[in-house]
């Protein structure tokens, strides 16, 4: 393996596992004879690579111009708060992963989120809760949420 093969190799690893496990990056670095941190740098440089396993439910929030103007960031923030993860991360139970995408081609429904390849339209914070409940966001989280709401009052 040569340095020029790095990206194709990483692509193939991601195709097979759905993400780039750190262990795999280490093996690639060993094969190439470069420090592991260099491979890590390349893997984090490109948006196409993910370092977390994709969740059972994959949520992609659109940040195209129309969705952004219609409150896409609010929707994304809501998902982040409810799932307690950031963009590109997966919940510890492996149920949900969150991504941001640039335009899914249905701007008239803005702001949209794509949940398991199904487009959800007008994603307001209330709708975010609805989507997550329909996917069975664990009861425990819901209770925590209700408790914190109760404390807020």
């Amino acid at each position: 393996m040569q340095e020029k093969d790095l990206i194709p190799v990483l692509e193939r690893i991601q195709k097979k596992y759905g993400y780039l496990p750190l262990q795999a990056l280490k093996s690639v670095a060993r094969e190439l004879g470069v420090p592991a941190v260099q491979v890590y740098g390349a893997a984090t440089f490109f948006k196409q690579f993910r370092l977390n396993p994709p969740g059972k439910y994959q949520i992609e929030v659109c940040m195209g111009t129309a969705c952004y103007m219609a409150g896409g960031q609010v929707a994304l923030d809501s998902f982040e708060r409810r799932l307690k993860i950031g963009v590109g991360e997966t919940t510890p139970d492996g149920e949900f992963s969150l991504e941001r995408v640039a335009c899914v081609g249905c701007c008239n429904l803005a702001p949209v989120a794509v949940v398991d390849n199904v487009v959800e339209k007008n994603v307001t914070p209330t709708r975010v809760d609805g989507i997550l409940l329909s996917l069975g966001l664990s009861e425990e989280n819901k209770e925590n949420k209700e408790n914190s709401n109760a404390q807020g009052k």
Binding site: V34, P35, V37, G41, T44
Partner: peptide, 17 residues
């Protein structure tokens, strides 16, 4: 080879593996 750059643009930083 303990440290390197990760990320891009606004997220670029010096970090370890």
């Amino acid at each position: 080879g303990a440290i390197g750059f990760s990320g891009r643009g606004i997220r670029r930083r010096v970090t370890t593996f």
